[in-house]
Write a protein that binds this DNA or RNA. Structure first.
Lengths: 165, 165
DNA sequence: TGTCGATATCTCAGTCCTGAGATTTGAACC
DNA sequence: GGTTCAAATCTCAGGACTGAGATATCGACA
C-alpha cells in the first residue's frame, strides 16, 4: 500500500483519481484565464505580473528583504535577483543593506515606484474584480476557503522527488 | 459609472475589490503549489508539464490537430509548434497532413509515445490526487463547480486591452 | 472564377525565468 | 576562537516559451 487512505470499495479509488484530475484541469484553466487579464492589464505599463507583484508587495508591506519578496511572488532566488535588478534599473526600487544581517539586503520603493503603484493599482484591482465576477460574494468566500485549504496542503506536502522510479 | 453592478453602499464596492484580490492570491498560490507537484513528477521523465499535457491529450482523445492541441495545453501557436517539434524529435509523436484541410496537420502518438504515457500516467495521476487531498470529496466537487464558473467567466470576458489608460 | 478576409501553421528574435553552483555572513558548538 | 553547517544573495548558462509577422490554404461572395 502506497496510499494513505483505505478505499471503501475497488471503484472508489478510481473515482478519487478522476475527480482530482478534473479539479486540476479546472484549477489550471481558471488560473490561466484570470492570469491573462492580470497580464494584459500590467503589460499596458510595461510590467510583467511578477514585477507588478514585487511593487505591490512593497507598497502594501513596506520594505522587504529579497527572501521575503521571493516568498511573495513565488519565483526562484535567481529570479528574485533578476526582478530586483530590472526594477532598480528603471528607478522604481532601490536596494539597501539590511541593518541586522549583513548577508541580506532590503528592497524598498523609490518615490517614483510609489507614485507608479498608486497610479496603476486601482484600475488593476477593478480589472481583477471584474475578471472574478463569475462568482457572487458568497461563492467567492467559499472559493477562498477551499483554495486556501488546497494550497496549504499542497505546499505543505513538499514537492520533493520520490526516490523510486 | 464604469462598473456593471450598483454597489449597495459606499463601502460595499471596496469590499468587493478586496475580496476579489484575496481570491486571486489564494488562486495563484494553490495553482503554484499543485503545479510544483505536477512538475516534479513529470521532470523525472525529462518532460515539462506542457509536453506531458500534449501526450496525455493525445492518449485520451486520439490524434488532434495542432490547433486543438493548443487549446488543450494553453500555449501560444509558436509554443505549439515548438512542443510538437520537440516531442517529434524524441520519437513520441508524429505529424501527418490533415485529410480534409491542407492547411492543418494532425499530431498522433507513436507506439513509443503511447507506451510512455501508459507507463507514467498512473503514478502521475496518483500524485495529483495526493496533492489535492487537502479537500474531501464533497469539497472537491464544490471547488470544481466554483472554479469552472470562474474560469468560464474570466475566459469569456476577453482579456483585451482597454483603449483608455 | 477571381478576389478577399479568415484560419492553420510555422519562423525567429527576444524575454522571463529556472536550477545549479559560488560567495559571503551568521550562529552554534566544541 | 576556530569549525562547521545553514541561510541570504548573486552569477551564469540555458530552457521554455511568447508575440509578431510570414506563408499557405480555405470559404464565401460578387
Amino acid at each position: 500500500m502506497t496510499t494513505t487512505k483505505k478505499p471503501r470499495s475497488p471503484g472508489a479509488e478510481d473515482g478519487a483519481v478522476k475527480r482530482a484530475l478534473h479539479l486540476w484541469v479546472v484549477l489550471s484553466r481558471a488560473y490561466a484565464a484570470v492570469q491573462a487579464h492580470a497580464q494584459a492589464d500590467v503589460a499596458r505599463h510595461g510590467l510583467t505580473i511578477a514585477e507588478f507583484g514585487v511593487l505591490e508587495a512593497l507598497y502594501h508591506k513596506g520594505p522587504l528583504r529579497l527572501g521575503e519578496v521571493q516568498a511573495k511572488v513565488l519565483v526562484s532566488s535567481g529570479g528574485t535577483t533578476w526582478l530586483a535588478d530590472r526594477l532598480e534599473a528603471r528607478g522604481l526600487v532601490r536596494r539597501v543593506p539590511a541593518a541586522e544581517d549583513r548577508r541580506a539586503r532590503v528592497v524598498a520603493l523609490t518615490p517614483a515606484g510609489e507614485r507608479l503603484v498608486r497610479r496603476i493599482f486601482p484600475a488593476h484591482a477593478r480589472r481583477i474584480r471584474d475578471a472574478l465576477a463569475g462568482l457572487g460574494a458568497a461563492e467567492q468566500r467559499d472559493a477562498i476557503r477551499l483554495l486556501r485549504a488546497l494550497g496549504l496542503h499542497a505546499a505543505g506536502s513538499q514537492a520533493r522527488e520520490p526516490s523510486d522510479a
